[in-house]
Design a protein around this nucleic acid. Structure first.
Length: 117
RNA sequence: GGAACCGAUUGGAUAAUCGCGUACGGAUGAACAUGCCGUAUGAGGAAAGUCCGGGCAUUCAAGGGCAACUCGCCGGAUAACGUCCGGUACAGGUGACUGUGAGGAUAGUGCCACAGAAAAGUAAACAACCCGAAAGGGUUCAGGUGCAACAGUAGUGUAAAAGACUACUCGGAAUAUCGAGAGAUAUUCUUUGAGGUAAACCCCGAAGGAAUGCAAGUUCAGCAGAAAGGUAAAAGCGGCCCGCAAACUUUCGACAGAACGCUAGAGGCGAUGAGUAAUUAUCGUCCCAGACAGAUGAUUAUCUGGAACAGAACCCGGCUUACGGAUCGGUUCUUUUU
RNA sequence: GCCCCCAUCGUCUAGUGGCCUAGGACACCUCCCUUUCACGGAGGCGGCAGCGAUUCGAAUUCGCUUGGGGGUA
């Protein structure tokens, strides 16, 4: 899982990232990429949005969040996420179909989207 | 052997790799560290719905009254409750057992469509029977209607009938006994023995300050104000009134970071005593999440099986709803054998 | 998280417990009118979120569930 420092935590940062509209999408996810960093040592912060419309129950929403974090962590290590390392922030917005996706298809989807940047 | 009923417990485990929150400790280092390492610990029986009751906090003003709200067989338990336990009555089931929003309809008002003579008045305007040439008079049992029609069955009686009378049953009242009480049983009297609806208004009884909810509130830091209205009357103060109070009110704009609140509690577990039980007293023992874009996951293997419902957000006690299985205890009915 | 509100034809809405087998407008379908379309006229289709309870009787009263919407820094 991601540590606290790697997470995007306030709503102004979320809005700043979303306003840039630098995004890629498929059936399951939309990924927004934030501004490039000034200071290279600053971390790339990640935010995940799972709306209540996707599923009513908190358990399922939490599970989706955990899976995406896990996948991001793996992508970061294996080098799939190299081309977003210069960004200040990254926001994952989930779409309706994500509730049907299992771990492997979600993983594939995230990796492909990250490569597009 | 089969079919049921009731209660209780459990709510995945183990291993491997990678990884997260909180607390404490350690090493490097002047500090800083997207820091690093170690140890401990880390979601539920419903954490859910937010339907009740409390604690806690703030506001209102010191108080009084009204309105409104809530509950409703009896007794007990509890901090409190609309909850729980035990009992009563009624209803359902062969039974174990289960269910019940279970005060009052002569305190009053309203409503009871259609049908029906009539839907609650000292009732017959359809119809039936008797008398009479007719007009009309007498009787209201049975019929039909309807959710509901002023007791039911059998007889006596009568022109034919009718609680008109008799017996039994149901209902009501009184008295006696039993019980803490709701009530139970027995005896006697009674046909003046006059419907339903209060989850319609309402009446009676009982208890409780009210409102707002931790996004309550407290502290620190930071901060920016502008325009309009108003001068003793309006506006303000928990719904209203009595009353209180004495300078602000409205609109627009800006800022919204950190800490406390925050988890030792009407706490858990065990033993003994009291009680039918809910519960409670004493003693011993344990410390068991505290986040703030919000921590328990991913992959693989095995275990009968690709294991249900589902994620703490100030904290407790309930209720309700969702749920794949597994285990234990008690009880009933029925069949067969002895 | 906390606190509230709502649910009636495809859409927008009426609706005193019985007159409701739920009314109206627009939309849709059929027919008439017109050379044809539109307008107009006649007719039709189609609904009380779900499950229980109270009541003789529930869209309406009560409880639970489901699905929407709003407020609150």
């Amino acid at each position: 899982m991601l540590k606290k420092k790697y997470r995007l935590r306030n709503s102004t940062a979320f809005w700043a990232t979303l306003k840039l509209k630098n995004c890629k999408a498929d059936d399951y996810l939309i990924i927004y990429k934030g501004k490039s960093k000034n200071n290279y040592s600053a971390p790339t912060k990640v935010g995940i949005v799972v709306s209540k419309k996707i599923h009513k129950r908190a358990v399922k929403r939490n599970k989706i969040k955990r899976r995406i974090r896990e996948i991001y962590q793996e992508a970061f290590k294996t080098g799939y996420a190299d081309n977003i390392k210069d960004a200040m922030s990254l926001v994952f917005i989930t779409r309706q179909k994500v509730i049907d996706a299992d771990f492997l298809t979600l993983k594939k989807s995230v990796f492909e989207l990250l490569q597009k940047f």
